[in-house]
Amino acid sequence: MTRHLLSCEDLTAEDAILILDTAKRLGELSTGPMRKLPTLRGRTVVNLFFEDSTRTRISFEAAAKRLSADVINFAAKGSSVEKGESLKDTAMTLEAMGADAVVIRHPASGAPYRLANAGWIGGSVINAGDGTHAHPTQALLDAYTMRDHLRGGTGDLQGLRVCIVGDILHSRVARSNVSLLTTLGADVTLVAPPTLLPIGVEEWPAKISYSLDDHLPETDALMMLRVQNERMNSAYFPSAREYSRRYGLTASRMSRMPEHSIVLHPGPINRGMEIASEVADSPRAVIIEQVRNGVITRMAVLYLLLGGSESGLGDLVDEEATA
């Protein structure tokens, strides 16, 4: 029984597939003029964001609201945190307000783990990105998108060839994806200049490469990571132009990928930097679908953690339906 979702390392293949299957079912329920599902009526979900992230926050907010949960947005900026409140006191305040789940984004790796295990709160903790550590719901929505396009929307990702390209060093998205995708049976290759690979990366369950061109013809899913502006002048690579020339996805590079292949990006994208405009707008780029899948995947996580009398992750008992 896992009450929290802290990192993809905690998920078995069974758990991960259950989340993806649940998301698929929720997608089926959301085809028409989407209204709220009453499932989490009376439950409170707090979005506790110590880092700005409009996209992730509104995705979690949309997911919780579609399940009829009450949503409290707590942004650290302009709040008691700026007045020096500690994570512990913030947590205990939220607990007193009756939060059933806390969705936390924090610049420090491990903050969600601390929040979940320090005994400050009784609800579920969902990691929405901590430092350079993990971003499990992003990995889940990426896996969902790949499975939907390349595996008919069912089962695992056995044998799927995935390339993750860009700033692996600072990327919690890459870490969570390597973990989840390999749990689901995919073969992952990390492509980056040596300066953007973390120390110890050879221990990860992934292949390493410095050349994007070598891998294009053997890639089913290509995930481009954003080059964060703040890194551009930090000597990780000689110039933005040089990075773009060697690691940017251009139309001519995309044309060397298999017909069926797809291009993913966690967003926001830098057009002309890691991904050319014409690639981002091509039908093979599934970036907008990732956003839609993000909402149903997060709905699935909220449902599995909060929907029953206890969490459905780790130990699901599918009762015979009693009419």
Binding site: L18, T22, Y303, G307, G308, S309, L316, V317, E319
Partner: peptide, 9 residues
């Protein structure tokens, strides 16, 4: 829903 174990969809 909340009275029993979680149901899969």
């Amino acid at each position: 829903l909340r009275r029993g174990k979680l149901r899969s969809l």
